[in-house]
Amino acid sequence: MAGNESKYTVLLQNVDKTLGKVKRIDHISLETEPGKIYGLLGPNGAGKTTLFHLITGLYRPDSGTVRVAQLDPVKDYKAARRQIGLLPQSTALYPELSARENLRFHAALYLPKKQKDVERRIEKILSLVDLSERADEPVKTYSGGMCRRLGIGRALLNDPQILLLDEPTLGVDVQSTHRIYEYIRRLKDGHKTILVATNVMAEADALCDEVIILDHGKKVCQGSPAKLKAELGTGTIHLVPKGSRPFEEAQLWNRIGDFTWDHGAIVIPAPRGEQDLAAVLGRLRDVMDLESVSLCKPSLDDVFLHYTGKNLRE
């Protein structure tokens, strides 16, 4: 066990946790490494926040083992939490204070031994999250995206090895969302381990090196977004014919082989993606006129549906 612990920043082995007679975490095992972004993907109630509470030592597992930087986050909570930065769902900033004052207050509470260089650290954080120019304005004047960026900055104040981000773009507009993505990717380059809890498939696809899909407290699959999507198999070509030019289905079978109908669209397997699309369009050029053409590849939504049997629910 000790040999395995030294390889990983976070290690869970066969962990169970029940809260209020409901099993929130069901026999989960996972490992994380430095320099990677991991997505905890699942609907509300899937167990993402509970998992964060186990990693930070706020919850003790009913069974199994949790290690953070080789430490027990319950028994060694002070040392373990020095390795962790947390952005909760609720950013929980003091609106009357400025960004600089919020960071100073946080530092006074949690960084008593680093007061000598705390001002330099605060300036570095403000620069990292692009808030230097508005650092002395009250947080109540900030947009939602600015507040989330300040929240990430606060989580980084102790220069943690492990960063836990719970819904990092919650309530944030599209432009600010992509800026936050840039900051998170930059942190990965700093050899930190980042866990992003989200129920937004596109967020996990855009950010994460590995995705862990949870449902009802169980880990249903894990892998890179590309690997999980590839495991579902081929893409499909969707052709919507124009009604002005009649055609016979037998002629389609002769030209393209197997196909199905889906709400007026002809659906054709495309294991080679764009190559198959070009071939199909060439074979049908003199057979039919097309209203629209699309090449559909498996998405993380498809992965979730495949492994859980349901759409992502709120």
Rank of each mutant, 00 (worst) to 15 (best):
G233D: 08
L300H: 05
D286K: 08
E314C: 00
G233T: 05
I122T: 01
I268R: 09
D62E: 06
P95N: 07
I122D: 02
E33R: 15
V174A: 13
Y59I: 00
D173T: 08
A278I: 10
V10M: 11
W253F: 15
Q175E: 15
V303E: 01
T169D: 10
E33S: 14
A155Q: 03
N158G: 13
K227D: 12
Q83D: 00
Q161A: 14
I237N: 07
A155M: 03
M201W: 05
S299C: 10
I266D: 08
K78W: 12
L156I: 02
A270Q: 05
H53L: 12
A270Y: 05
A135W: 00
G243Y: 12
D76C: 04
I256L: 13
H306A: 11
N102C: 06
L150F: 10
T141D: 02
R185Y: 00
L312T: 03
K229S: 06
H216P: 02
P246E: 00
L109D: 01
L87T: 02
E123G: 15
V303G: 11
D173P: 01
L252T: 05
K242M: 12
T260S: 15
L284V: 09
L163F: 09
S294M: 03
G190C: 14
K227R: 12
D302S: 06
R185L: 14
R272D: 11
P95D: 06
Q89N: 05
D159W: 08
L19D: 09
P88V: 08
K140F: 01
A278Y: 10
R154D: 06
C221M: 10
